[in-house]
Design a protein around this nucleic acid. Sequence first.
DNA 1: GCAAAAGTGTTTCCGATACACCCATGA
DNA 2: TCATGGGTGTATCGGAAACACTTTTGC
Lengths: 234, 234
Amino acid sequence: MAVQKDFSVDCVVFGYHEDELKVLLIEQRMPETSAGKEKRYALPGDLVQDNEDLDDSASRVLKELTSVELENAYLKQFYTFGNPKRVKGLRDQQWLRSFRQDPDARVITVAYYSLVKMEDYNPVAASFASETVWMNVDEVPALAFDHNTIFDKALATLREKIKYYPIGFHLLPKKFTLSQLQHLNEVISGEELDKRNFRRKVQKLPYIIPLEEKQKGVFHKPARLHVYDERFKE
Amino acid sequence: MAVQKDFSVDCVVFGYHEDELKVLLIEQRMPETSAGKEKRYALPGDLVQDNEDLDDSASRVLKELTSVELENAYLKQFYTFGNPKRVKGLRDQQWLRSFRQDPDARVITVAYYSLVKMEDYNPVAASFASETVWMNVDEVPALAFDHNTIFDKALATLREKIKYYPIGFHLLPKKFTLSQLQHLNEVISGEELDKRNFRRKVQKLPYIIPLEEKQKGVFHKPARLHVYDERFKE
DNA sequence: GCAAAAGTGTTTCCGATACACCCATGA
DNA sequence: TCATGGGTGTATCGGAAACACTTTTGC
Protein backbone atom coordinates (compact mmCIF):
# COMPACT_ATOMS: atom_id res chain seq x y z
CA MET A 1 0.00 0.00 0.00
CA ALA A 2 1.34 3.35 -1.02
CA VAL A 3 2.13 6.03 1.51
CA GLN A 4 -0.79 8.21 2.47
CA LYS A 5 -0.44 11.76 1.16
CA ASP A 6 -1.58 15.15 2.26
CA PHE A 7 -1.22 18.82 1.31
CA SER A 8 -0.81 21.76 3.58
CA VAL A 9 -0.16 25.46 3.31
CA ASP A 10 2.11 27.49 5.56
CA CYS A 11 2.14 31.26 5.77
CA VAL A 12 5.11 33.47 6.57
CA VAL A 13 3.40 36.67 7.67
CA PHE A 14 5.62 39.74 7.80
CA GLY A 15 4.89 42.90 9.73
CA TYR A 16 6.83 46.06 10.50
CA HIS A 17 6.82 47.94 13.76
CA GLU A 18 9.19 50.45 15.29
CA ASP A 19 11.80 50.00 12.62
CA GLU A 20 11.87 46.25 12.94
CA LEU A 21 10.76 43.56 10.57
CA LYS A 22 8.63 40.96 12.31
CA VAL A 23 7.21 37.57 11.53
CA LEU A 24 4.06 36.08 12.97
CA LEU A 25 4.51 32.77 14.78
CA ILE A 26 2.13 30.55 16.65
CA GLU A 27 2.99 28.78 19.82
CA GLN A 28 2.39 25.14 19.15
CA ARG A 29 0.26 23.51 21.79
CA MET A 30 1.96 20.23 22.67
CA PRO A 31 0.03 17.15 23.79
CA GLU A 32 -0.15 16.51 27.56
CA THR A 33 1.98 13.41 27.31
CA SER A 34 4.71 15.19 25.48
CA ALA A 35 8.24 14.85 26.77
CA GLY A 36 9.52 18.38 26.39
CA LYS A 37 7.07 20.94 27.72
CA GLU A 38 8.89 24.05 26.68
CA LYS A 39 7.27 26.35 24.24
CA ARG A 40 7.71 25.63 20.61
CA TYR A 41 6.81 27.88 17.74
CA ALA A 42 5.64 27.18 14.24
CA LEU A 43 4.49 29.06 11.20
CA PRO A 44 0.73 29.32 10.86
CA GLY A 45 -0.56 26.71 8.46
CA ASP A 46 -3.15 24.03 7.93
CA LEU A 47 -4.12 21.12 5.75
CA VAL A 48 -5.70 22.05 2.46
CA GLN A 49 -9.33 21.02 2.52
CA ASP A 50 -10.97 18.85 -0.08
CA ASN A 51 -12.05 20.98 -2.95
CA GLU A 52 -10.27 24.04 -1.65
CA ASP A 53 -7.90 25.90 -3.91
CA LEU A 54 -4.38 26.54 -2.59
CA ASP A 55 -4.68 30.32 -2.53
CA ASP A 56 -8.02 30.07 -0.75
CA SER A 57 -6.48 27.79 1.79
CA ALA A 58 -3.71 30.27 2.54
CA SER A 59 -6.25 33.09 2.81
CA ARG A 60 -8.28 31.03 5.21
CA VAL A 61 -5.26 30.41 7.43
CA LEU A 62 -4.54 34.11 7.50
CA LYS A 63 -8.13 34.97 8.23
CA GLU A 64 -8.48 32.43 11.00
CA LEU A 65 -5.39 33.91 12.62
CA THR A 66 -6.71 37.39 12.69
CA SER A 67 -10.46 36.96 12.78
CA VAL A 68 -10.47 40.00 10.54
CA GLU A 69 -11.48 40.21 6.93
CA LEU A 70 -8.26 41.11 5.19
CA GLU A 71 -9.79 41.91 1.86
CA ASN A 72 -6.61 43.05 0.19
CA ALA A 73 -3.85 41.31 2.02
CA TYR A 74 -0.71 40.78 0.03
CA LEU A 75 -0.32 37.02 -0.05
CA LYS A 76 1.84 35.17 -2.55
CA GLN A 77 2.83 31.60 -3.04
CA PHE A 78 6.62 31.35 -3.15
CA TYR A 79 7.80 27.76 -2.83
CA THR A 80 6.74 24.20 -2.14
CA PHE A 81 8.52 21.97 0.33
CA GLY A 82 8.21 18.25 -0.06
CA ASN A 83 11.17 16.53 1.52
CA PRO A 84 9.91 13.09 2.57
CA LYS A 85 11.42 13.62 6.02
CA ARG A 86 10.11 17.10 6.62
CA VAL A 87 7.58 16.08 9.30
CA LYS A 88 9.48 13.15 10.75
CA GLY A 89 11.22 14.78 13.71
CA LEU A 90 10.46 13.34 17.15
CA ARG A 91 8.49 16.26 18.46
CA ASP A 92 6.85 16.75 15.08
CA GLN A 93 5.60 13.18 15.25
CA GLN A 94 4.29 13.65 18.79
CA TRP A 95 2.36 16.67 17.69
CA LEU A 96 1.00 14.99 14.57
CA ARG A 97 -0.17 11.95 16.52
CA SER A 98 -2.24 14.15 18.77
CA PHE A 99 -3.67 16.57 16.26
CA ARG A 100 -3.80 14.92 12.87
CA GLN A 101 -5.88 12.13 11.42
CA ASP A 102 -3.04 10.69 9.38
CA PRO A 103 0.12 11.32 11.36
CA ASP A 104 2.14 9.07 9.08
CA ALA A 105 1.05 10.72 5.89
CA ARG A 106 3.64 12.33 3.69
CA VAL A 107 2.79 16.01 3.64
CA ILE A 108 4.03 18.50 1.13
CA THR A 109 3.44 22.09 1.99
CA VAL A 110 2.88 25.02 -0.31
CA ALA A 111 4.38 28.08 1.34
CA TYR A 112 3.05 31.63 1.08
CA TYR A 113 4.39 34.89 2.34
CA SER A 114 2.25 37.79 3.31
CA LEU A 115 2.84 41.44 4.04
CA VAL A 116 0.42 43.04 6.45
CA LYS A 117 -0.12 46.36 8.15
CA MET A 118 0.45 45.43 11.75
CA GLU A 119 -1.82 48.08 13.14
CA ASP A 120 -4.79 46.67 11.19
CA TYR A 121 -3.97 43.30 12.54
CA ASN A 122 -5.22 41.62 15.61
CA PRO A 123 -4.06 38.04 15.63
CA VAL A 124 -5.91 35.62 17.84
CA ALA A 125 -5.08 32.13 18.87
CA ALA A 126 -6.41 29.61 16.42
CA SER A 127 -7.79 26.35 17.72
CA PHE A 128 -4.56 24.44 17.25
CA ALA A 129 -2.33 27.04 18.84
CA SER A 130 -2.34 28.68 22.20
CA GLU A 131 -0.82 31.99 21.32
CA THR A 132 0.54 34.08 18.50
CA VAL A 133 3.53 36.38 18.66
CA TRP A 134 5.27 38.84 16.42
CA MET A 135 8.91 37.88 16.45
CA ASN A 136 11.79 39.98 15.22
CA VAL A 137 13.13 38.28 12.09
CA ASP A 138 16.62 38.26 13.60
CA GLU A 139 15.43 36.39 16.65
CA VAL A 140 13.42 33.55 15.22
CA PRO A 141 14.02 30.45 17.35
CA ALA A 142 14.09 26.80 16.28
CA LEU A 143 10.68 26.09 14.79
CA ALA A 144 8.58 22.98 14.27
CA PHE A 145 8.92 20.77 11.19
CA ASP A 146 11.04 22.37 8.47
CA HIS A 147 9.68 25.81 9.25
CA ASN A 148 13.07 27.44 9.67
CA THR A 149 13.90 26.45 6.12
CA ILE A 150 10.59 27.86 4.95
CA PHE A 151 11.04 31.06 6.88
CA ASP A 152 14.58 31.57 5.58
CA LYS A 153 13.45 31.14 2.03
CA ALA A 154 10.54 33.53 2.56
CA LEU A 155 12.85 36.19 3.91
CA ALA A 156 15.28 35.69 1.04
CA THR A 157 12.40 35.92 -1.42
CA LEU A 158 11.13 39.12 0.15
CA ARG A 159 14.57 40.68 0.06
CA GLU A 160 15.09 39.65 -3.51
CA LYS A 161 11.72 40.91 -4.63
CA ILE A 162 11.92 44.23 -2.88
CA LYS A 163 15.09 45.02 -4.82
CA TYR A 164 13.04 45.52 -7.93
CA TYR A 165 9.39 45.88 -6.94
CA PRO A 166 7.81 48.35 -4.58
CA ILE A 167 5.96 45.97 -2.32
CA GLY A 168 7.08 47.42 1.00
CA PHE A 169 3.99 49.61 1.23
CA HIS A 170 1.90 46.70 2.30
CA LEU A 171 3.82 46.70 5.57
CA LEU A 172 3.19 50.37 6.31
CA PRO A 173 0.08 52.17 7.49
CA LYS A 174 -2.06 53.56 4.68
CA LYS A 175 -0.67 57.00 5.36
CA PHE A 176 3.05 57.02 5.92
CA THR A 177 5.94 59.42 5.99
CA LEU A 178 8.92 59.24 3.70
CA SER A 179 11.16 58.55 6.66
CA GLN A 180 9.12 55.51 7.57
CA LEU A 181 9.42 54.29 4.03
CA GLN A 182 13.14 54.87 4.02
CA HIS A 183 13.67 53.04 7.29
CA LEU A 184 11.59 50.14 6.03
CA ASN A 185 13.77 49.86 2.97
CA GLU A 186 16.90 50.06 5.06
CA VAL A 187 15.73 47.37 7.42
CA ILE A 188 14.74 44.95 4.70
CA SER A 189 17.72 45.49 2.44
CA GLY A 190 20.23 45.95 5.23
CA GLU A 191 21.74 49.04 3.60
CA GLU A 192 21.77 52.65 4.68
CA LEU A 193 20.33 55.14 2.25
CA ASP A 194 20.99 58.82 1.74
CA LYS A 195 17.96 60.82 2.81
CA ARG A 196 17.98 63.38 0.04
CA ASN A 197 18.64 60.91 -2.71
CA PHE A 198 15.98 58.59 -1.41
CA ARG A 199 13.37 61.32 -1.26
CA ARG A 200 14.19 62.60 -4.70
CA LYS A 201 13.85 59.16 -6.19
CA VAL A 202 10.66 58.29 -4.37
CA GLN A 203 8.94 61.55 -5.19
CA LYS A 204 9.47 60.83 -8.83
CA LEU A 205 7.58 57.54 -8.60
CA PRO A 206 4.07 57.80 -9.96
CA TYR A 207 2.50 55.63 -7.29
CA ILE A 208 3.59 57.61 -4.25
CA ILE A 209 1.00 60.29 -3.66
CA PRO A 210 1.76 63.15 -1.27
CA LEU A 211 -1.15 64.35 0.84
CA GLU A 212 -1.77 67.80 2.26
CA GLU A 213 -2.07 66.15 5.63
CA LYS A 214 0.67 66.13 8.24
CA GLN A 215 1.63 64.00 11.18
CA LYS A 216 0.08 65.11 14.48
CA GLY A 217 1.17 64.86 18.06
CA VAL A 218 4.81 64.31 17.28
CA PHE A 219 7.60 65.77 19.24
CA HIS A 220 9.30 67.43 16.32
CA LYS A 221 8.53 68.97 12.98
CA PRO A 222 5.57 67.00 11.63
CA ALA A 223 6.19 65.07 8.44
CA ARG A 224 4.04 65.16 5.39
CA LEU A 225 1.98 62.01 4.85
CA HIS A 226 1.89 60.00 1.66
CA VAL A 227 -0.21 57.18 0.32
CA TYR A 228 0.54 54.38 -2.07
CA ASP A 229 -1.65 54.34 -5.14
CA GLU A 230 -3.24 50.90 -4.95
CA ARG A 231 -3.88 50.87 -8.66
CA PHE A 232 -0.23 49.97 -9.04
CA LYS A 233 -0.71 46.90 -6.94
CA GLU A 234 1.28 44.40 -8.89
CA MET B 1 -13.98 9.25 3.20
CA ALA B 2 -11.74 12.09 2.26
CA VAL B 3 -10.64 12.62 -1.31
CA GLN B 4 -7.59 10.63 -2.35
CA LYS B 5 -4.55 12.84 -2.90
CA ASP B 6 -1.51 12.70 -5.08
CA PHE B 7 1.53 14.80 -5.99
CA SER B 8 3.08 15.23 -9.38
CA VAL B 9 5.82 17.26 -10.99
CA ASP B 10 5.66 18.86 -14.42
CA CYS B 11 8.65 20.22 -16.32
CA VAL B 12 8.67 23.09 -18.76
CA VAL B 13 11.85 22.44 -20.71
CA PHE B 14 13.12 25.33 -22.80
CA GLY B 15 15.52 25.09 -25.70
CA TYR B 16 16.84 27.52 -28.28
CA HIS B 17 17.47 26.78 -31.91
CA GLU B 18 17.84 28.99 -34.97
CA ASP B 19 16.84 32.16 -33.16
CA GLU B 20 13.69 30.61 -31.74
CA LEU B 21 12.76 29.74 -28.20
CA LYS B 22 11.30 26.24 -27.99
CA VAL B 23 9.53 24.15 -25.41
CA LEU B 24 9.59 20.38 -25.15
CA LEU B 25 6.18 18.71 -25.32
CA ILE B 26 5.14 15.10 -25.29
CA GLU B 27 2.40 13.71 -27.42
CA GLN B 28 -0.06 12.15 -25.06
CA ARG B 29 -0.98 8.64 -26.03
CA MET B 30 -4.75 8.39 -25.72
CA PRO B 31 -6.55 5.18 -24.81
CA GLU B 32 -7.99 3.10 -27.64
CA THR B 33 -11.55 3.79 -26.58
CA SER B 34 -11.06 7.50 -26.56
CA ALA B 35 -13.55 9.65 -28.42
CA GLY B 36 -11.24 12.18 -30.04
CA LYS B 37 -8.24 10.56 -31.65
CA GLU B 38 -6.37 13.69 -32.66
CA LYS B 39 -3.01 14.33 -31.20
CA ARG B 40 -2.83 16.02 -27.88
CA TYR B 41 0.24 17.41 -26.24
CA ALA B 42 1.23 17.75 -22.62
CA LEU B 43 4.17 18.87 -20.57
CA PRO B 44 6.44 16.07 -19.40
CA GLY B 45 5.66 15.11 -15.85
CA ASP B 46 4.99 12.24 -13.51
CA LEU B 47 3.72 11.34 -10.08
CA VAL B 48 6.17 11.87 -7.25
CA GLN B 49 7.23 8.52 -5.88
CA ASP B 50 7.01 7.54 -2.27
CA ASN B 51 10.07 8.76 -0.47
CA GLU B 52 11.29 10.74 -3.45
CA ASP B 53 12.15 14.40 -2.97
CA LEU B 54 10.49 16.88 -5.32
CA ASP B 55 13.68 18.03 -7.01
CA ASP B 56 14.73 14.43 -7.54
CA SER B 57 11.41 13.70 -9.07
CA ALA B 58 11.78 16.53 -11.56
CA SER B 59 15.32 15.40 -12.41
CA ARG B 60 14.05 11.92 -13.01
CA VAL B 61 11.37 13.13 -15.40
CA LEU B 62 13.97 15.09 -17.33
CA LYS B 63 16.35 12.16 -17.42
CA GLU B 64 13.70 9.69 -18.54
CA LEU B 65 12.85 12.01 -21.40
CA THR B 66 16.32 12.24 -22.73
CA SER B 67 17.90 8.99 -21.64
CA VAL B 68 20.97 11.09 -21.12
CA GLU B 69 22.67 11.97 -17.90
CA LEU B 70 22.21 15.72 -17.65
CA GLU B 71 24.54 16.24 -14.78
CA ASN B 72 24.26 19.99 -14.66
CA ALA B 73 20.89 20.77 -16.13
CA TYR B 74 19.38 24.04 -14.98
CA LEU B 75 16.15 22.96 -13.31
CA LYS B 76 14.20 25.15 -10.90
CA GLN B 77 10.92 24.83 -9.12
CA PHE B 78 8.77 27.86 -9.91
CA TYR B 79 5.16 27.35 -8.86
CA THR B 80 2.66 24.82 -7.59
CA PHE B 81 -0.74 24.32 -9.15
CA GLY B 82 -3.49 22.85 -7.07
CA ASN B 83 -6.84 23.89 -8.42
CA PRO B 84 -9.26 21.10 -7.45
CA LYS B 85 -10.56 21.00 -11.03
CA ARG B 86 -7.21 20.99 -12.78
CA VAL B 87 -7.45 17.34 -13.92
CA LYS B 88 -11.20 17.14 -14.32
CA GLY B 89 -11.60 17.85 -18.04
CA LEU B 90 -13.29 15.15 -20.11
CA ARG B 91 -10.22 14.07 -22.04
CA ASP B 92 -8.07 14.43 -18.95
CA GLN B 93 -10.33 11.97 -17.16
CA GLN B 94 -10.24 9.51 -20.05
CA TRP B 95 -6.49 9.57 -19.96
CA LEU B 96 -6.29 9.23 -16.19
CA ARG B 97 -8.67 6.27 -16.18
CA SER B 98 -6.40 4.41 -18.56
CA PHE B 99 -3.04 5.28 -17.13
CA ARG B 100 -3.39 6.05 -13.44
CA GLN B 101 -4.16 3.99 -10.41
CA ASP B 102 -6.27 6.65 -8.75
CA PRO B 103 -7.94 8.57 -11.57
CA ASP B 104 -10.20 10.39 -9.13
CA ALA B 105 -7.43 11.54 -6.86
CA ARG B 106 -6.90 15.22 -6.38
CA VAL B 107 -3.45 15.96 -7.79
CA ILE B 108 -1.41 19.02 -7.10
CA THR B 109 1.58 19.50 -9.29
CA VAL B 110 4.85 21.18 -8.50
CA ALA B 111 6.10 22.81 -11.68
CA TYR B 112 9.74 23.17 -12.72
CA TYR B 113 11.34 24.92 -15.61
CA SER B 114 14.54 23.85 -17.21
CA LEU B 115 16.98 25.38 -19.66
CA VAL B 116 18.89 22.94 -21.83
CA LYS B 117 21.37 23.00 -24.67
CA MET B 118 19.33 21.52 -27.47
CA GLU B 119 22.26 20.05 -29.31
CA ASP B 120 23.22 17.99 -26.24
CA TYR B 121 19.71 16.78 -26.03
CA ASN B 122 18.17 13.76 -27.54
CA PRO B 123 14.69 13.35 -26.19
CA VAL B 124 13.09 9.96 -26.50
CA ALA B 125 9.54 8.82 -26.01
CA ALA B 126 8.81 7.92 -22.44
CA SER B 127 6.56 4.99 -21.72
CA PHE B 128 3.46 7.10 -21.33
CA ALA B 129 3.99 9.20 -24.42
CA SER B 130 4.43 8.29 -28.02
CA GLU B 131 6.56 11.18 -29.16
CA THR B 132 8.31 14.32 -28.06
CA VAL B 133 8.57 17.56 -30.01
CA TRP B 134 10.25 20.89 -29.65
CA MET B 135 7.55 23.48 -30.18
CA ASN B 136 8.08 27.16 -30.82
CA VAL B 137 6.85 28.99 -27.73
CA ASP B 138 4.60 31.17 -29.89
CA GLU B 139 2.88 28.14 -31.37
CA VAL B 140 2.04 26.06 -28.35
CA PRO B 141 -1.35 24.40 -28.93
CA ALA B 142 -4.05 23.56 -26.38
CA LEU B 143 -2.44 21.19 -23.90
CA ALA B 144 -3.71 18.54 -21.52
CA PHE B 145 -4.84 19.34 -17.97
CA ASP B 146 -3.94 22.89 -16.92
CA HIS B 147 -0.64 22.72 -18.78
CA ASN B 148 -1.22 25.90 -20.75
CA THR B 149 -1.49 27.79 -17.49
CA ILE B 150 1.70 26.16 -16.27
CA PHE B 151 3.54 26.87 -19.49
CA ASP B 152 2.44 30.52 -19.51
CA LYS B 153 3.65 31.00 -16.00
CA ALA B 154 6.96 29.32 -16.77
CA LEU B 155 7.55 31.59 -19.72
CA ALA B 156 6.65 34.65 -17.67
CA THR B 157 9.01 33.49 -14.92
CA LEU B 158 11.83 32.96 -17.38
CA ARG B 159 11.31 36.39 -18.92
CA GLU B 160 11.20 38.00 -15.52
CA LYS B 161 14.27 36.23 -14.28
CA ILE B 162 16.38 36.87 -17.31
CA LYS B 163 15.90 40.60 -16.83
CA TYR B 164 18.24 40.49 -13.87
CA TYR B 165 20.15 37.23 -13.95
CA PRO B 166 22.36 35.81 -16.68
CA ILE B 167 20.76 32.42 -17.08
CA GLY B 168 20.45 32.44 -20.87
CA PHE B 169 23.76 30.62 -21.29
CA HIS B 170 22.21 27.35 -20.34
CA LEU B 171 20.32 27.48 -23.63
CA LEU B 172 23.38 28.03 -25.79
CA PRO B 173 26.13 25.66 -26.88
CA LYS B 174 29.17 25.66 -24.62
CA LYS B 175 31.01 27.82 -27.12
CA PHE B 176 28.93 30.62 -28.49
CA THR B 177 29.34 33.88 -30.36
CA LEU B 178 28.27 37.24 -29.00
CA SER B 179 25.74 37.53 -31.78
CA GLN B 180 24.09 34.31 -30.68
CA LEU B 181 23.94 35.61 -27.16
CA GLN B 182 22.47 38.88 -28.30
CA HIS B 183 19.81 37.19 -30.40
CA LEU B 184 18.90 34.94 -27.52
CA ASN B 185 18.38 37.93 -25.29
CA GLU B 186 16.32 39.66 -27.93
CA VAL B 187 14.11 36.64 -28.48
CA ILE B 188 13.42 36.10 -24.80
CA SER B 189 12.93 39.72 -23.84
CA GLY B 190 11.22 40.73 -27.05
CA GLU B 191 13.36 43.86 -27.38
CA GLU B 192 15.97 44.81 -29.94
CA LEU B 193 19.41 45.62 -28.62
CA ASP B 194 22.17 47.79 -29.99
CA LYS B 195 25.08 45.64 -31.09
CA ARG B 196 27.90 47.85 -29.87
CA ASN B 197 26.32 48.62 -26.54
CA PHE B 198 25.48 44.98 -26.00
CA ARG B 199 29.01 43.83 -26.76
CA ARG B 200 30.59 46.45 -24.57
CA LYS B 201 28.41 45.49 -21.64
CA VAL B 202 28.87 41.77 -22.07
CA GLN B 203 32.63 41.96 -22.46
CA LYS B 204 32.80 43.69 -19.13
CA LEU B 205 31.08 40.78 -17.38
CA PRO B 206 33.51 38.59 -15.49
CA TYR B 207 31.83 35.34 -16.41
CA ILE B 208 31.99 35.67 -20.19
CA ILE B 209 35.34 34.32 -21.30
CA PRO B 210 36.58 35.00 -24.82
CA LEU B 211 38.48 32.17 -26.51
CA GLU B 212 41.14 32.36 -29.16
CA GLU B 213 39.00 30.05 -31.23
CA LYS B 214 36.84 31.17 -34.11
CA GLN B 215 33.79 29.90 -35.90
CA LYS B 216 34.56 27.66 -38.85
CA GLY B 217 32.84 26.96 -42.11
CA VAL B 218 30.69 30.03 -42.07
CA PHE B 219 29.84 32.04 -45.08
CA HIS B 220 31.08 35.32 -43.69
CA LYS B 221 33.63 36.71 -41.31
CA PRO B 222 34.01 34.11 -38.56
CA ALA B 223 33.06 35.24 -35.10
CA ARG B 224 35.12 34.78 -31.99
CA LEU B 225 33.80 32.11 -29.62
CA HIS B 226 33.14 32.64 -25.94
CA VAL B 227 32.34 30.43 -22.99
CA TYR B 228 30.36 31.01 -19.85
CA ASP B 229 32.33 30.53 -16.67
CA GLU B 230 30.31 27.88 -14.88
CA ARG B 231 31.68 28.95 -11.53
CA PHE B 232 29.21 31.81 -11.68
CA LYS B 233 26.32 29.44 -11.97
CA GLU B 234 23.77 31.35 -9.95
C1' DG C 1 34.04 41.30 -56.15
C1' DC C 2 30.09 40.57 -53.60
C1' DA C 3 27.08 38.94 -50.00
C1' DA C 4 26.85 38.24 -45.20
C1' DA C 5 27.71 38.88 -40.58
C1' DA C 6 31.72 40.45 -37.37
C1' DG C 7 33.75 43.92 -35.18
C1' DT C 8 34.87 48.64 -33.46
C1' DG C 9 34.64 54.52 -30.67
C1' DT C 10 32.74 58.67 -29.47
C1' DT C 11 29.29 61.75 -27.81
C1' DT C 12 25.24 62.67 -25.22
C1' DC C 13 22.07 62.14 -21.54
C1' DC C 14 20.34 60.78 -17.22
C1' DG C 15 20.22 58.57 -13.03
C1' DA C 16 23.20 57.59 -8.87
C1' DT C 17 26.12 59.44 -5.40
C1' DA C 18 28.06 62.49 -2.09
C1' DC C 19 27.44 66.06 0.95
C1' DA C 20 25.48 70.10 5.26
C1' DC C 21 22.41 73.20 6.85
C1' DC C 22 17.81 75.38 8.28
C1' DC C 23 12.81 74.34 9.87
C1' DA C 24 8.65 73.24 12.67
C1' DT C 25 6.97 71.26 16.69
C1' DG C 26 6.12 69.81 21.80
C1' DA C 27 8.07 69.75 26.03
C1' DT D 1 15.16 77.33 24.17
C1' DC D 2 16.27 72.95 23.12
C1' DA D 3 15.88 68.35 21.45
C1' DT D 4 14.05 65.83 17.72
C1' DG D 5 13.39 64.35 13.30
C1' DG D 6 11.65 66.88 8.72
C1' DG D 7 12.96 68.90 4.75
C1' DT D 8 15.86 70.90 0.92
C1' DG D 9 19.98 71.82 -3.71
C1' DT D 10 24.12 71.22 -6.30
C1' DA D 11 28.18 69.28 -8.34
C1' DT D 12 30.33 65.04 -9.91
C1' DC D 13 30.62 60.47 -11.78
C1' DG D 14 29.51 56.51 -14.42
C1' DG D 15 26.60 53.65 -16.95
C1' DA D 16 23.03 53.66 -20.81
C1' DA D 17 21.80 55.03 -25.29
C1' DA D 18 22.38 56.63 -29.92
C1' DC D 19 24.76 56.23 -34.01
C1' DA D 20 27.91 54.23 -39.21
C1' DC D 21 31.60 52.35 -41.18
C1' DT D 22 35.44 48.82 -42.04
C1' DT D 23 36.85 43.80 -41.90
C1' DT D 24 36.95 38.93 -42.93
C1' DT D 25 35.38 35.02 -45.00
C1' DG D 26 33.19 31.65 -48.71
C1' DC D 27 31.44 31.55 -52.93
